[in-house]
Nucleic acid binder design. Sequence first.
RNA 1: GGUCUCGUAGUAUAACGGUUAGUACAUCGGGUUUUCAUCCCGACAACGCGGGUUCGACUCCCGCCGAGAUCACCA
Length: 479
Amino acid sequence: MIVTRFAPSPTGYIHIGNVRSAIYPYLLARQAKDGKMILRIEDTDRARYVEGATELIEDTLEWLGLNWDEGPIVGGPNGPYFQSERQDIYLQWAQKLVAAGRAYADPTPPEQIDEYRKQCSQNKVPFLYRNFRPEQTPEWQPGMPLRFKAEPKNYTWHDEVMGDLSAGPEVQDDIILIKKDGFPTYNFAHIVDDAEMGVTHVMRGAEYISSTPNYLALYDALGLERPKLVSLPHILAPQGNKKLGKRDGAKSVTEYRDDGILPEAMLNYLACLGWNDGTEQEIYTKDELTNRFSLDRIQSSGARYDETKLLWMNGQWLRRIYDTDGPEALFSRTTGFWPESAADVSDEYKLKVLSIIYDRLKTLSDLRTMTDYFFKDPVIDLEMLLQNKFLKKLSESELEDLLKRTIAKLADLESWTADSLQEVLNALLAETGKKPAELFSLIRIALSFAPFSPALNLTMEVLGKETSLARLNAVASSI
RNA sequence: GGUCUCGUAGUAUAACGGUUAGUACAUCGGGUUUUCAUCCCGACAACGCGGGUUCGACUCCCGCCGAGAUCACCA
């Protein structure tokens, strides 16, 4: 039985620096025949709570296709799944600790604690609250913080990613269990929740390694079995060596959706950032990922986030969907990514455009900038035409003449298909004695006034005879 | 400062004592009758440093250096 969880706090959007701690638990749970993943919302910090953040988290997971078996929306036997609704549970466990003499109410005012801390830094000794533990502690009452009573010792433990780890007593302290406001701290709440919910694998960022001894002490004091601990290496920002965070401009995952990144590509990229199956495969479906995933192949060093590779992978996925699932499958993903000029255009026509442009796309939003001329006549930009590297050696009258001969030839063409268009184009090449680069660039630019476009015959076929000729005529007469 | 972790090309990674150190992205060059892209071919480019252990070390051990994480009534 494998039970994993993703336990974000609703303080804002999920960015690429931290979705991976949702992806790996998901893969591990799905891989097991009877595995399940829990989504738990850690909303014990009322000050940082952001309205709507929970929905944002759910939205992100849904987009990536990471469904959860227990949690908000779907419910489950171990609810509630919002920590703010589990107060009485934490209280019970806290009482247990108090009764066992392993927790005490701390009457010390915060200012005093700051004072202790200052002393320590002045004397260059590490600050440990247990060195200032009050002699007399009052009975614990609401409004008073509850602290753990540490009994420091050496700890060694196994981390599924990092291997065998150890730390001495100097990192164990009387950590706060319940805050003055009555809410538990993460340190206490997650331990209770994971145990109550039957979580077998605690997967989280590597920043928690330092506090693990405190957690271990808590498991012991609470009489709880340790779950398997899995520390995920950090994802580093593109610049510098810091872990990627919102301050580095880490975009939200859903922002990538709006930019035309496919969830398949996002999942694929992120899953393979810090994990690989040992083969040279690069593109993985979600199913392949769940089948191949294994904890022991997760990297222990941090990995830098590289958007260029994400973009490449997205292009791969774009083509893969078109080629294997069919044009309609890709087309159904394009809603909302077409230029305004395509608003009233039929799906049938847009599908044709997509079929000749899709292999040039890096993201779906490229459609917006790359297909405009298929839906409305481009603004004639003679400079672009005249300054083209192949055309600038030709005189204006020569260009005009070439255009006119092209128009005449095309006007006679009855069957307006890509193949016959290519034949006409080839014939034109032979008749005029021009190089493809010259003649085709001229026609291409005259039709689109775009920096690049699909093959000429395909472009003309989609545009249609009437539109193509009208555009060529317009250019011919304005030279 | 204490504690802990990490260290193969610009980036992501393979190698689990014996390879000309492999692959992908990026970069640069070439090819596929225009451009851009796809696709194909090619080039550039790496084991942080120093000691051991061993016939042999990217792989094991130690030291150093470098980088990061963490030391909250945040998670």
